[in-house]
Amino acid sequence: MAIPTQATSPRASSEQPRTYAKRRPNVPAGLLSTVWLLIVMVPIYWVVITSFKSSAGYYRSNPMAPPVDPTLENYRLVIESDFALYFVNSVVISVGAVVPAVLMSFMCAFAIVRGGTGRYLRGVNAMFLMGLAIPLQATIIPVYLIIIQLGLYDTLRGLILPSMAFALPLTILILSNFIRDVPNELFESMRLDGATEWGTMWRLAFPLTKPALVTVTIYQALVVWNSFLLPLVLTQSPDKRVLPLALWSFQGQYSVNIPAVLASVILTTLPILVLYVIGRRQLLSGLTAGFTK
């Protein structure tokens, strides 16, 4: 007796395991990535090893060779050269400029997005966007004259106010785009629950835009921390210097103490590195937000 064969249904055939072709390694991309890694790491390696060399030993040895007799003399010299004072000045200026600028930018962005389509709000938004096209170098003379007229020359407040002003345009632009991504139904539901615009801003928009807030905070803190032109023009006294200007302390009339300068660079970079480590998750989520929508 013949056994009838069962016909293979389309569904059964579709459930069979699929075989995928083995992926070939992307050799050119791997080589380019390795080259780029070397380009980035070689300067960092040179800065680190040079900071542990003596000033005389730096000129006698191969610049890329590790130090034969590592020393912490350069770091001791930097710390004893009023590094703590310059560090405190940089912290005061960075915190005093970035925190108010981010809060003001968040409130301005919320008003621009949730305030309707009035001509006044469109004009305010356009004014802030125009600020992105004006570089700091083009306004340094007017800023210098304004600070003198206000009696804030050679003070930390005279550095905080311009730093806040130049941080507003980009911060408002980024936060506005994040607030626009918040579903309108959430705002309507809070309004039906009796929440005011002020309560909606702080209870709904503020928590949902936290990745963007952390992103712009770290970015603006980095910009203010590394600022050189404003402190150079708006300050004069040695006790008002910030860390970028402190590098001048290791430049003589005829020579430069390169190991001490690089030790100062490392100590100046550490706070920003710590800030990145603390907020790296929020920073990455803020930078990649929108790609998965």
Score class of each variant (00 low, 15 high):
Met64Leu: 15
Thr209Lys: 03
Leu243Trp: 09
Tyr59Lys: 10
Lys22Glu: 15
Ala289Lys: 08
Thr209Asp: 01
Leu37Asn: 07
Gly151Lys: 00
Val48Gly: 00
Leu275Asn: 01
Phe128Leu: 14
Ala246Leu: 08
Gly123Glu: 02
Gly96Cys: 12
Glu188Leu: 13
Val143Tyr: 09
Ile272Tyr: 03
Asn257Tyr: 10
Ala263Gln: 03
Ile146Pro: 00
Asn184Val: 14
Val124Met: 13
Pro100Thr: 04
Val277Gln: 13
Pro43Arg: 08
Gln236Arg: 13
Thr215Ser: 14
Leu156Ala: 07
Val91Met: 13
Met41Gln: 04
Lys22Ala: 15
Tyr254Cys: 07
Val182Tyr: 07
Pro63Ser: 05
Ser163Met: 05
Met190Cys: 08
Ala21Phe: 08
Gly116Leu: 08
Met130Pro: 01
Pro142Ser: 13
Leu159Ala: 06
Ala29Thr: 05
Ala97Leu: 04
Val233Ala: 04
Tyr86Phe: 15
Pro183Leu: 07
Val242Asn: 09
Gly115Ala: 10
Glu15Cys: 01
Leu173Tyr: 13
Thr19Val: 13
Thr217Trp: 02
Ser227Ile: 00
Pro244His: 05
Leu247Asp: 02
Ile278Met: 07
Leu72Asp: 05
Ile147Lys: 01
Arg122Gly: 12
Asn257Trp: 11
Leu129Glu: 11
Met107His: 12
Met190Glu: 06
Ile49Ala: 03
Phe128His: 09
Pro271Trp: 07
Arg60Tyr: 10
Ala133Glu: 05
Gly286Arg: 02
Leu173Thr: 07
Ser264Cys: 12
Tyr276Arg: 01
Arg60Pro: 00
Gly199Trp: 03
Leu273Trp: 11
Ala205His: 05
Ile148Met: 07
Phe166Cys: 02
Asn26Glu: 08
Thr288Phe: 10
Gly158Pro: 05
Arg180Ala: 10
Val124Cys: 08
